[in-house]
Amino acid sequence: MKKLNFLIVMDEISKINYKKDTSLAMAWAISERGHGLSYCKIDDLWLDQGVLKIDAQPLSVFRDPDHFYELGDVATVAVTEFDVILMRKDPPFDMNFLYALHLLDYAKRAGVWVVNDPLSVKDCNEKLFATQFSDLMSPTIVTNKQAHIREFIKTHGDVIVKPLDGMGGMGIFRLTADSPNIGSTLEMLTQLGTTPIMAQKFIPAITEGDKRVLIVGGKPVDYCLARIPSTGETRGNLAAGGRGVAMPLSERERQLAETIVPILLEKGLYFVGLDVIGGLITEINVTSPTCVREIDDQCGTQIAVDFIEFIENNIATKAA
């Protein structure tokens, strides 16, 4: 096996959750398989005469909650020092995130394999991308106009509204026809009608869990994580207090995943989190999907290792 040099672009490593962080699992897999590993944040990417440079730090990782990483000295290196870049920056998908994706496209053009493909991440908003498969979704609209959303609520009676750029359940509200705060909620989310949001018919099966189905290298992982809302809560997101229960994929969930796989492969999206409630797609997460650690801990899988093995086996043909 050829030794590869990996760069992982992520949030501040000192602030990650040792018990749950998927990027850390990837870093362990890279290190334990003998590859080189460096780290940076998105503000460490910069251009010099059209060449992408990176203020990177060598990264060592350990399976010790009290000492799980060490960083070496910062050094400015050309992007071609790396074979693979893993883009693992969490949303929100703001302008700085967008600029980073544009910069990472310079890496792709220089022959470095960027996973997931930066231009596809740019093009595939995690809420909007799912609407390309609208026949597999609960009824959904995207608009900045209160009138359309009010009519949608009137038609369906029970609706979820959410921003297009959030994560972890932030900004998600459930509205019914008799909700007293429809106007103020929509004013806030649409920023007084200037920003489009998503409205979806509520799916009662959320009580059984918002299921995260991971797709690695075009193959659905055999287990998903059902994120079950806490009492009195609509959102199943773990960040919103949901409880994560791993379970085998149902036939329907596998079918949904396999339906979108050809599009994912075409777009260079090799590590994806499909969100499913009641057998219906709600989102397709392409930025920094999580839940690897919970599934591994409960089912004995090694999802991050499978991902790195996929890269090892395909870098010769998949790199730009």
Score class of each variant (00 low, 15 high):
residue 139 P to H: 02
residue 136 L to N: 08
residue 96 N to C: 07
residue 129 F to A: 10
residue 101 L to H: 13
residue 156 H to T: 12
residue 94 D to Q: 10
residue 135 D to I: 14
residue 131 T to P: 03
residue 140 T to M: 00
residue 131 T to E: 08
residue 94 D to G: 04
residue 130 A to H: 06
residue 82 F to E: 01
residue 91 P to E: 09
residue 97 F to L: 06
residue 117 D to Y: 09
residue 150 R to V: 13
residue 116 N to Y: 00
residue 73 D to K: 11
residue 89 K to P: 05
residue 98 L to H: 10
residue 152 F to A: 03
residue 149 I to Q: 02
residue 135 D to P: 02
residue 85 I to R: 01
residue 69 Y to T: 01
residue 130 A to V: 04
residue 116 N to E: 00
residue 92 P to F: 03
residue 91 P to I: 07
residue 104 L to W: 05
residue 134 S to C: 14
residue 72 G to P: 11
residue 151 E to C: 12
residue 71 L to W: 00
residue 102 H to V: 07
residue 89 K to A: 08
residue 91 P to V: 07
residue 156 H to M: 12
residue 146 Q to M: 15
residue 104 L to G: 02
residue 114 V to I: 09
residue 97 F to N: 05
residue 108 K to N: 13
residue 151 E to G: 08
residue 75 A to F: 10
residue 145 K to P: 03
residue 112 V to R: 08
residue 78 A to D: 13
residue 80 T to K: 14
residue 79 V to G: 02
residue 162 K to E: 06
residue 116 N to D: 01
residue 139 P to I: 05
residue 134 S to L: 15
residue 150 R to M: 15
residue 111 G to Q: 12
residue 142 V to W: 07
residue 119 L to W: 11
residue 109 R to G: 14
residue 89 K to S: 09
residue 158 D to K: 08
residue 88 R to I: 02
residue 117 D to H: 11
residue 162 K to Y: 02
residue 73 D to T: 10
residue 135 D to N: 14
residue 95 M to R: 13
residue 118 P to I: 00
residue 97 F to Q: 02
residue 107 A to H: 09
residue 107 A to V: 09
residue 159 V to N: 10
residue 101 L to Y: 13
residue 151 E to I: 12
residue 119 L to Y: 11
residue 110 A to F: 00
residue 98 L to V: 15
residue 127 K to A: 07
residue 133 F to S: 08
residue 138 S to A: 15
residue 83 D to G: 02
residue 118 P to W: 01
residue 162 K to H: 04
residue 135 D to C: 13
residue 75 A to Y: 08
residue 125 N to E: 12
residue 103 L to P: 01
residue 82 F to G: 01
residue 91 P to W: 08
residue 104 L to A: 04
residue 124 C to Y: 13
residue 73 D to Y: 11
residue 120 S to L: 11
residue 94 D to F: 01
residue 79 V to I: 06
residue 122 K to E: 15
residue 69 Y to S: 00
residue 87 M to W: 00
